[in-house]
């Protein structure tokens, strides 16, 4: 799936950069970001919200987080 960004293991600010790049490309729709620290989870959520995306759901999977972002047309 090309709407999934795997940012696990990446240090600050890489997860946010990857998310914002994907947001720029996608414009609207659904994005899934995988991160493995709470800090990255907060940072990605904060950055996406600032761009008008909604953090629809955050699932804790094993040792990481799956963040589902959405923006309607």
């Amino acid at each position: 799936m090309n709407n999934t960004i795997d940012a696990k293991g990446l240090s600050c600010p890489q997860p946010v950069i990857l998310t914002l790049n994907a947001i720029k490309k996608a414009k609207t729709g659904e994005l899934i970001v995988l991160v493995d620290t709470q800090t990255s989870k907060e940072n990605v959520s904060r950055a996406a919200t600032a761009k008008g995306w909604k953090v629809e759901e955050v699932q804790a999977v094993n040792d990481s987080y799956k963040i589902i972002l959405r923006k309607e047309n």
């Binding site: 696990k8 293991g9 990446l10 240090s11 600010p13 890489q14 950069i17 493995d36 040792d63």
Partner: peptide, 13 residues
Amino acid sequence: FLKNGYNLGSSHK
């Protein structure tokens, strides 16, 4: 550099 793809790679658990 960050904008141009600078990245030190992933860490692992």
